[in-house]
Design a binder for these strands. Sequence first.
DNA 1: GTGGTCTAGACCACT
DNA 2: GTGGTCTAGACCACG
Lengths: 124, 124, 124, 124
Amino acid sequence: MKLIVNNSSMVPIYEQLVDQIKTMIVRKELGPDAMLPSVRALSGELKISALTVKKAYDALEAAGLVVTVHGKGTFVAMANQNLIREEQCREVEALLAQAVQRAGAGGITREELEEMWRLVLEEN
Amino acid sequence: MKLIVNNSSMVPIYEQLVDQIKTMIVRKELGPDAMLPSVRALSGELKISALTVKKAYDALEAAGLVVTVHGKGTFVAMANQNLIREEQCREVEALLAQAVQRAGAGGITREELEEMWRLVLEEN
Amino acid sequence: MKLIVNNSSMVPIYEQLVDQIKTMIVRKELGPDAMLPSVRALSGELKISALTVKKAYDALEAAGLVVTVHGKGTFVAMANQNLIREEQCREVEALLAQAVQRAGAGGITREELEEMWRLVLEEN
Amino acid sequence: MKLIVNNSSMVPIYEQLVDQIKTMIVRKELGPDAMLPSVRALSGELKISALTVKKAYDALEAAGLVVTVHGKGTFVAMANQNLIREEQCREVEALLAQAVQRAGAGGITREELEEMWRLVLEEN
DNA sequence: GTGGTCTAGACCACT
DNA sequence: GTGGTCTAGACCACG
């Protein structure tokens, strides 16, 4: 589990964890039934509070990506993999739409915007 | 001044104000030396706290877009408006880059991403 | 707000809070837009941790019964009142079904079961 | 012994075992002095931990339904089976009372409640 | 060993 | 003032 937390980020740590684990599941780096690190193990490894890890796992469970079994551990939920992908698409589209909207509000022309897009695509 | 605040938005009210006023300046709806509404007037009109308006004006001043003169009011700075435009561009590019990055992380192919882009462009 | 917490109950405190507040909203003792006690105020009053109250409020928000606005407070969500009622009905039916099922498993006849029902109805 | 365990249920496994064995005893599928499967045999069959089975047997013994003889096995107690039945009745009544109480708290009228009862009885 | 809950207090952001 | 997050450590229930 290569998880990275940025303490000074404005994004809450538990949300950083949720995002990264979500990505791993979508990319199938974590297959169905894979066990996530125990709350305590991960909190120790990342040097953060166990409660913070727990909060992240809770969010993942609420999203249906993960199932936790009392006394046994937390596991990647089966199925649902298409659902996750759809969610990812929605997020990306939202970002693009936001960019287009801000460009319009800021007086950036379509041509300039498309030029930016090409630039960004090349750089990433 | 047609400003709108959305209380239930995730975006802080003061940031909503900053964004909208910034846009007005870029679009030259507010020319150099134009006077912004007084803190108290605006807070009354929008039914929000005067402190919130003050925080927005402070942020605009910190960004160099506006100058506050004690006892007189807050005025659009004469400063080079190209700077503002550049800032806008940077924000839009950041959003695009974020979208591309998330798409990569979520296993979305370049083709699918570009298709999304076309879709979003048409809709906006 | 007459809320009661039972520390020695097996039911988690935050869940006790959720149940009681849910009931108040259903019974319209708390109308739409009513403000709930602040996290700190309630935690002080009930002599429990602020985090516990927060967890209850989070659960209520996830259920759509409540909206919390940063820096302002937590408020009863409008609408949704029929939804809540349906949820209550579902819970009651689940309890009844569970009772009938256990009665069957335990070798209790229908006659005896109905007799119990009459008894319970009278007592409550 | 046809015992079923549901790992993903909210009910603890040992409690599931207790419930099912209790039911068997009440229904006289397990007569007095009948021998229960050994802890190791049952744990192997159900693919659960031996400690979990032990915990279930301990609970049954504490309830007086079963007697464990060191080195020989676990046996259904001769004790009065009416006691078990009474316990079952108490549980069912508790569920019914809880349903009535929640109905009251949720603003469900007696008429609606009795309608639900008829419905549930028909379905089970 | 695991997760589930709770505490008491801290610091930050928003109004 | 409000909520949002985080900590370090405790106790309990389950396996």
